[in-house]
């Protein structure tokens, strides 16, 4: 347990890294704007990092990948919408959104964990379907929530808009904070720092007594029971942390993106994060902060760099979205087939 981190990074991660560097070199030969490609991928890494981080607690506690991440995301969206409703701007708006989102996510996380404790062994399936159900339930919810602000509700009819712009609130406020450019590459330092701080907090938690016992309970529940650890409570704690990270994550994501996306948008947000942590070398029952960092970097830069190059070469505009879906679901499928520890 050196540093509380065990590096289980394999040769495949190195190959992928080398592949990305090759792609970057190729892009400059194709006459593409390489610095802007790098900038794009850094922004995407920053946007997605917290979602990837949210996978860590549930893996540690033995639940596995958190397919129910959108539950937390919806809590963050509600918090965000409330700040827009009251026309809050700047950092105070951003942090108010986070502060409203967190308690909601705690409540939802407790409910989610309680539900998963009743369905041990099929948490990932249950999480997936719970995700779908809740996202669609909230499609009704968005229609009837009593928002009044003209920036949120449809100009005609009832309900909230499907995308809500943050132009006048806190668009890119973290991205721009302390940001700078080197050799044409823009570094959104504020957002990256925010990500790193959260990673550090989670890492601290994992090296605290509770964190170590959570890993122990997740690694072998019977062993946990023989030490008098309440396994169910540990699992609930992990879903709470994961949901809170989901809520914070969507606010950070949206400020960078410039919009809150509602209705069915959160439904697919867990999958890139799942693919990322798996690409970073994690398995469904073992993961570390290193896997999170590495995974976010590899997956996002692979997609943001490789896909424009692919469309450049094949000149087919719809290719990138197809490939994105193919790659992320392919990785998840591959990792799930390895779940039982059997070779395929």
């Amino acid at each position: 347990m050196k540093l509380g981190i065990k590096v289980n990074v394999g040769i495949s991660q190195f190959i992928m890294g080398a592949f990305i560097i090759c792609l970057l070199i190729l892009s400059s030969f194709l006459g593409m704007n390489t610095p802007s490609l790098i900038s794009d991928s850094i922004v995407r890494i920053g946007m997605q990092m917290i979602f990837v981080l949210a996978m860590l607690p549930t893996i540690q506690s033995g639940i596995g990948l958190n397919f129910g991440l959108p539950l937390g995301i919806i809590c963050g969206l509600v918090g965000g919408l409330i700040t827009v409703e009251f026309n809050m701007t700047g950092f105070s708006g951003l942090f108010t959104a986070i502060l409203i989102g967190i308690p909601l996510a705690v409540v939802v996380g407790i409910f989610y964990g309680w539900l998963l404790n009743h369905m041990k062994g099929s948490e990932m399936t249950v999480g997936n379907y719970l995700n779908f159900s809740v996202v669609y339930l909230m499609c009704i919810g968005w229609m009837i929530l009593p928002f009044k602000n003209g920036a949120i509700v449809w100009a005609m009819g009832e309900g909230v808009r499907s995308t809500i712009t943050l132009d006048n609130n806190y668009q890119q406020i973290l991205d721009n904070f302390l940001s700078f450019s080197i050799a044409g590459v823009r570094i959104p330092l504020g957002m990256l720092l925010f990500d790193i701080i959260l990673c550090f907090l989670v890492w601290m938690f994992m090296t605290s007594k509770t964190g170590i016992l959570m890993r122990c309970s997740g690694g072998n529940p019977v062993f946990g029971a023989s030490l008098g650890i309440n396994n169910d409570r540990m699992r609930i704690l992990s879903t709470v942390i994961s949901s809170v990270l989901g809520a914070v994550g969507i606010i950070v994501y949206s400020q960078s993106y410039g919009f809150y996306q509602l209705y069915t948008a959160p439904q697919m947000m867990a999958y890139p994060a799942i693919a990322s942590i798996l690409i970073g070398g994690a398995t469904t029952h073992r993961a570390t902060i290193i896997n999170v960092l590495l995974g976010a970097v590899l997956y996002q830069s692979l997609l943001t760099i490789a896909l424009p190059i692919a469309s450049e070469i094949l000149s087919n505009s719809s290719l990138s979205e197809i490939l994105r879906t193919l790659v992320s679901n392919g990785i998840i499928l591959y990792a799930l087939t390895k779940m039982g520890g059997k070779k395929i």
Partner: peptide, 12 residues
């Protein structure tokens, strides 16, 4: 089955 955390270190 019960006695060890097989994936953890001796230290843990």
């Amino acid at each position: 089955g019960v006695g060890l955390l097989l994936h953890e270190s001796i230290e843990t």
